Each structure stands twice: as C-alpha cells, then as structure tokens.
Simulated scan of single mutants.
Amino acid sequence: MRIDIITVLPDLLRSPFEGSIMKRAIQKGLVEVHFHNLRDYSSNKHKNVDDYQFGGGAGMVMMCEPIDLCISKLKEERKYDEVIYMTPDGETLKQKMANSMSMLQNIIILCGHYKGVDQRVRDMHITKEISIGDYVLSGGEIGAIVLCDALIRLIPGVLSDETSALTDSFQDNLLSHPIYTRPAEYKGLKVPDILLSGNFPEIEKWREQKAYEHTLNRRPDLLEE
C-alpha cells in the first residue's frame, strides 16, 4: 500500500511512522508513506494556503489552487483508489470500513485546517470523506494518523500474529472479551478457572459469551447493527 498525505504540518506526522507497528510495516516494504507539504504548492511569496471565506464569517479557508496542484501532480504519477479528506462531517471510521480499505493499493489523504477546504476541492478530487468522531480537532493530521494505523495493522505480514487483528473489538460487531496474563492470582484476584482448564472449545464459548455481555452493557447499539 502507498499512502500520500497532504498537510501543512508534515513534521507533526512523522513521529508515529518512525516507531511502533507502522515503522515495521514500512521497513518490511509492505507500506510506503509520503508526506507532501501543501505550502510547496503555494503560488504567493508568503506561501499562504488559506484566505478569507466569501460571504464573511469567522475562520479562514484552505484555498483551491495549492491542493489542486498537489493532488493533480500525484494523479499524473499513478492511479489512486481513493482520495480521502479528513473532516468532521465525513463518514465515521469504523472497523468494517478499515477492513475494506486495507486492501487498497494507493490512497491520498488530505488533512484539513482552519474552517476546512474550499468546496471546489471536494467536488473536483475527493472520493471519500472520513471522520474519526463527533468532535473537532485543530487539523486533520491526527485523524490521518488514526486512519493509517487502523489500515496498516490489517495488511498481511504487518502483525506478528495475523489472526490477532481478526479477534479485535468490532470485528464481529462485538467488543473484546476480558483478557488475562500471569500470574494466575494477584492481590486476591484470580483468573477465571475456565481459562486455566486447557479446554479450548469451552474457553471459546466463554469468550464469546463474555464478549456479548460486555457489548450489551457498554455498546448495545453494536448489537442492533
């Protein structure tokens, strides 16, 4: 997978890709991540990429031209499966979406700032708009990192145990069951006997039941889906 991220703050993005699972994926050659500074595509001497909005109102708007020039240049070099805009009014990122998108080959992620981007950018180039939740951040970079992590960890070969991702919360519209590790007893709190029994069919039944109960208590809306 190749990911091209368009941003006015490339340095903010670099650190998460220089450690953890995402770094391992890049080192293995499973993922390429490229950062594109939008100011490099500005046509004015101050490298501005924003201006006042027509009709008045508070807040600046990211201009058409720098974004159009950057995306058009990338499109000349390769075909993209999706051109994504991180925005609060986009479709909420969920596990099913991440599962599907993890199979894409080339994507562009545009990080918004200020009041957002000129609507004409969305009309011309954007094929998918994604939100990571019902709240507003200072920019789209944090959302882009979240999206990249959610996708990259699902690519075969990234995780040491590929089956791990298949048992994560939300994969079956269920939250994860309780998990334990050594010691078997700590400060009077014991690991459930079933997990120590070695009876794996019964362990799986226990885990399924606990996952259902956990979801019912905390996120009953998932069961309705």
Rank of each mutant, 00 (worst) to 15 (best):
M1C: 13
R2W: 02
R2T: 02
I3Q: 05
I6N: 00
T7L: 07
L9D: 10
P10C: 08
L12W: 13
P16S: 00
E18D: 15
M22D: 09
I26P: 11
H34I: 06
N37D: 05
N37G: 06
D40W: 06
Y41F: 05
Y41P: 00
Y41K: 04
S42P: 05
S43T: 01
N48H: 13
V49Q: 03
D50G: 04
D51H: 03
Q53T: 14
Q53P: 14
F54T: 11
A58M: 02
M60K: 09
M62T: 11
P66D: 02
I67Q: 00
D68Y: 11
L69R: 04
C70W: 00
I71H: 00
I71F: 04
K73E: 01
E76C: 12
Y80Q: 03
Y80S: 07
E82Y: 11
M86C: 05
P88A: 06
P88D: 01
D89G: 14
D89C: 15
T92A: 15
T92L: 15
Q95W: 12
Q95T: 12
M97W: 08
S100C: 10
M101D: 03
S102A: 12
S102Y: 10
I109P: 06
I109H: 01
C111A: 05
G112V: 05
H113Q: 14
H113N: 15
H113D: 12
Y114P: 06
G116L: 02
D123T: 12
T127N: 07
I132A: 07
Y135M: 03
S138V: 15
S138N: 13
G140K: 02
I142Y: 11
G143K: 08
A144F: 01
I145S: 07
V146I: 09
C148Q: 11
D149Y: 04
L151V: 11
I155E: 08
I155T: 08
P156S: 03
L159C: 12
D161H: 08
T167R: 14
D168W: 00
F170G: 13
D172C: 14
N173A: 07
H177M: 09
P178L: 12
T181Y: 07
T181P: 08
R182C: 10
A184T: 15
L189H: 11
V191S: 04
L195E: 13
S197C: 05
G198H: 04
N199K: 15
F200M: 06
P201Q: 06
P201W: 06
E204G: 10
R207K: 07
R207D: 06
Q209H: 14
Y212I: 09
R218H: 11
D221Q: 05
L222I: 00
E225Y: 09
E225H: 12
